[in-house]
Amino acid sequence: MIKIISLFLLFTIHCSLFTVSYAGEAPKRIISLAPNMTEILFALGLDDNIVGVTSFCDYPEEAKKKQKIGGMSNPSLEAVVSLKPDIVVMTIDGNPKEFEERLRSLKIKTYVFRSKRISELSQGIRDMGTALGVKERADLLAREIETTINKISRGVLQYAPASVKNPSPFAPYPSPEKKILFIIWPEPLIVAGPGSITDDAITIIGGRNIAAKSKSAYPKYSIEEILTQAPDIIFIGRGMGMEKVSQGLLKKLKSVPAIKNKRVFYVSDYLYRLGPRTVKGIEELAGYMEQ
């Protein structure tokens, strides 16, 4: 048991300050230590420069064909070194800090992607593009992301209740914003809490995350609290047979407005990674708000 717990701790404790150490000409051989880094690298057109990715890097399709260097929290140092990278790209919250230190002690350059929230995504991409010598493309991608997010948050007002759009002194109560719950996994119940990308997305589409008061980004949540807070919309991450696995939970929640009014939606996993596809995830959620 002790071993399992320590393994668990090892996997969870990896957030701390990282340092960026890169300067010089555009790198030719790049290794990515996180799926969202791989997606950004491909989006920046660096397809041919990527020489290694993690075993979780499954998008785009070509990423699967790249050489694997292990997992996110346990990449293989030997595998990384033997690929002779010019730079190793990693994230501040998904990869162990010690790994970065080891790489630097071996004189391997690293770039640490520091953005954790949607609001920091476009700047993160710009910084990364500068470091990798693809400044223009990064700027283009970042602007694309900013434009889409702005469009969505402006669009929110179009279908917002009239009282929110034109606050009138005669309106008895301001129409409350939609209460939303995003379920990551039903058994045991884990939801998207404050500080998660999904929580950001819910705010952007003009909703209110009922789990926003939890203590962690992905809390184990109380079913009783869901019944009490009565969400208007429930989103459930798709995949791993989720339609079936979630039936038990939904049965328990059958009296909340979201289920009574058939406003439970299974959505794709775009919002689990902070990358080029994050905006697609926001668009998807926004689409269900309009219905």
Partner: peptide
């Protein structure tokens, strides 16, 4: 431990929570 160390962090957390005992369902 073997299957946990080759699984995703997300899956690991789900399995951990189950193993620690979960009565909520």
């Amino acid at each position: 431990m073997l299957i946990m160390s080759i699984s995703t962090d997300e899956g690991l957390r789900k399995a951990m929570l189950w193993i620690f005992g979960d009565l909520s369902m």
